[in-house]
Computed example of a mutant assay.
Amino acid sequence: MATWDDLAAYIRQSYHVVREEPDEIRIRLSYDDDRAQVVVIAREILDRKEEWVQIATPFARVDQVDLREVLTEIGNTIVVGGLVLMGEHLVLRHSLPLINLDINEFVDPLELVTGSAELLEEQFTGRDDY
């Protein structure tokens, strides 16, 4: 898999797509405990030449949580991804270059980022909003 179109085709075939735009696909992953997580998968262009894919999923509003506690938890437990503030939302995200991307190099980080965000959401908000 080496292009956004290839990855988008795989995502459409493998996941529940809830929204799609030319450079962005939103999917919903469901878990056995009736919880779910929405994930934004977006095409990014680095330095106007290299295609990357960004996996991002919100898990809380910044005003809902103790940011220091969240950052400490992420520092102690998260292997893939980093915390960013997007508007009023805390978002766990990870980026990968598309060139020579094997499917496991996408699926594994997707599952890790999404699963981690779901656990953070449950731990810090007790809700299932995202």
Rank of each mutant, 00 (worst) to 15 (best):
D33A: 06
H89R: 14
Y31S: 01
E50W: 13
D129S: 15
T114R: 02
L85M: 14
N76G: 13
I27V: 07
M86E: 15
D63S: 11
I55Y: 01
N104H: 11
A60S: 05
L120N: 06
N104W: 11
M86N: 15
L96A: 05
L98S: 01
T114P: 00
V91H: 09
F124C: 05
S116D: 04
A117I: 03
I27D: 00
E20L: 05
R68I: 14
E122T: 15
L101S: 02
I78P: 02
L96P: 01
D63Q: 14
I27C: 02
A42N: 08
R61S: 11
E122L: 15
H94G: 01
I55E: 00
N104S: 09
V84K: 13
H89Q: 15
F124A: 07
I103K: 03
F59Q: 03
R68D: 13
Y31R: 06
T125L: 05
F59H: 08
I74M: 14
I99A: 09
E121Y: 06
I45V: 08
P22L: 07
V53N: 02
A56L: 07
I78Q: 09
V53K: 03
D63I: 11
V91K: 08
G75T: 09
P22Q: 08
R19H: 13
V107F: 07
P109A: 03
V79A: 12
V79D: 08
G87A: 10
L112D: 03
R35E: 08
H94M: 02
L46A: 12
P97S: 05
I55N: 00
L119Y: 12
D63M: 10
I25K: 00
R28G: 01
F124S: 06
V113N: 02
V80T: 13
V17Q: 00
H89M: 13
E20K: 04
I99C: 04
R127E: 12
E111R: 12
P97Q: 06
T77M: 10
M86L: 14
R61K: 15
F59L: 07
T77G: 07
D128M: 08
S95Q: 10
R26Q: 10
I74P: 02
F59P: 02
V17S: 00
P58G: 09
S116N: 10
A36R: 08
T72G: 10
R93Q: 15
E88L: 12
V107K: 07
D34R: 11
R35D: 06
F124Q: 06
E122K: 15
L71C: 13
S30E: 11
E122V: 13
V17N: 00
I27F: 04
E105H: 06
D47P: 03
I103G: 00
D32M: 11
D129T: 13
L67Q: 10
I41N: 01
F59C: 04
T114D: 00
I99F: 12
R19P: 03
V40C: 09
I103P: 00
L85N: 12
G75H: 11
E69L: 12
A56C: 07
V62M: 13
K49P: 06
E50A: 13
V18S: 10
D34P: 03
K49S: 12
V38E: 12
